[in-house]
Nucleic acid binder design. Structure first.
Lengths: 248, 248
DNA sequence: GGTATAACTGTAGGATCTTACAGGGTCATC
DNA sequence: GATGACCCTGTAAGATCCTACAGTTATACC
């Protein structure tokens, strides 16, 4: 069979039905652009008190265990970059920027011992409060890998977007019961006006219904969202993308 | 001078200091990938009651006026797609999906009369509540343009991310006074716990301070955010990315 | 006709939030 | 030593929200 192209892999992702399919697509992508390993992580807000985390990883288990037990996600510059940016970033660049911070240098050094020498990380933000990232790694030295990383970057950026949508689809069974809270029109309207700072009375006036009814809708929404009060309901509804205040 | 490459344009964006620079980079990108026109739009939540809108456009003014006066943003499938997705989409696809909806067919037809026949739209979501999109258009028929659109897509996707960061930077003077609300550590903590559904009393216990102090911080934060009550403060702080509830 | 869903309403007591009063303390910077 | 930024606290009245009580109406679908 012919070598897979970029489009084949995107198509495979679009049809992926299992985690294994997605894993395979990532591996395929790595092969195509000469990367050695990858890790994808996502955090998805839910109606539970904790977000739902998803990882799809080819990274060495030993490294992941060290990473978790040391709490490296707090200092990992790729994680920090991807949480606050929308553009991809090479590890080389992050390494250069961390010149003064010994902890981070040591972190990169430790990762290198597991073959994670150079690489690039791609952020995704969904607009629904979800965020995710894909890192592609190479065992080649930073300087030597620079060119292939640069060439792969636009494709990696787009791959990451499709990857995230594929993950969402495949995990929908697990995610849906947690995220698929459907608010009625009225429930959304009531929450929205409250999120705009309106009181129950004001919201009632705006919507042309009684105060009692506004309370009723907010209560129903709060039960669906599994929250205890109005502020919590608003926070969660926004985080889950059910309402978007201040947008026309 | 040699033809500009993809990387040159990204570099130009990274250095862009004015709207004109950005406009030029977009035009340059269109030339490189054989598109005829572009429009970029962003909406950025602020501490005012309305978000801040930014447009950078090469579209015909006549079309933009019709678009605005008709309120086409409400039915424009590219806008709807970009608000809810993270992957790019071709207009051809949106056109096919709208088979039944006459209004949308007519919308596409009307756009065609202004040379906006085929194209592709790229969404961006920043994780700070900002969202933006870039549309690239061609006067070529949908079928004929399909190939060049497909080839340009990964580059367009990445270009859009850099474009958005450039716009943020260039508009920072205008945006900053509206978005650069700095909450203190305590203010954030208090809002965060309230957004998690905690009462004043519970928050006070969690932070080891008095109820009165929690009220004090929430009041200060509310004044900075220019809002009237707790729910409003939480909504705006989340929309502006100042706090992120439910994330560890 | 039964069932489910959504929208709607009233009252009342208790919980919670908001505001206005009036302060004290630390720390870094100019 | 003053100034500003931040953090901390108390009381009390009034506004607002939450909950539990107990319903009605309209619509769609089986």
């Amino acid at each position: 069979m012919a070598v897979k192209t970029y489009h084949d892999i995107i198509d495979a992702l679009s049809c992926a039905a299992t985690v294994e399919d997605i894993h395979e697509a990532c591996s395929e992508f790595c092969r195509l652009y000469d990367f050695d390993n990858f890790i994808y992580g996502a955090r998805i807000p839910t109606s539970l008190s904790k977000p739902y985390f998803i990882y799809i990883s080819g990274y060495p288990k030993a490294w992941r265990e060290i990473y978790n037990s040391e709490g490296y996600q707090r200092i990992d510059p790729t994680v920090i970059h991807c949480a606050t940016h929308i553009t991809p970033v090479t590890w080389e660049r992050l390494f250069r920027q961390s010149r003064e911070d010994r902890r981070i240098r040591e972190f990169f050094g430790e990762a290198s011992q597991f073959g994670l020498v150079s690489g690039v990380s791609f952020p995704v933000h969904s607009g629904r409060g979800e965020s995710a990232m894909l890192s592609l790694s190479s065992a080649e030295a930073r300087q030597r890998a620079a060119r292939k990383i640069q060439e792969a970057t636009p494709f990696g950026q787009m791959f990451t977007a499709y990857l995230h949508e594929a993950v969402r689809r495949v995990f929908s069974q697990e995610i849906l019961p947690l995220t698929n809270v459907r608010l009625t029109e009225r429930e959304k309207q009531c929450l929205l006006w409250c999120a705009e700072g309106k009181t129950t009375w004001e919201t009632a006036r705006i919507l042309g219904i009684s105060e009692r009814t506004v309370l009723y809708h907010i209560r129903n929404a709060s039960e669906k969202l599994n929250v205890t009060n109005r502020s919590h309901a608003i926070a969660r509804a926004i985080a889950m993308g059910l309402i978007t205040p201040e947008y026309s």
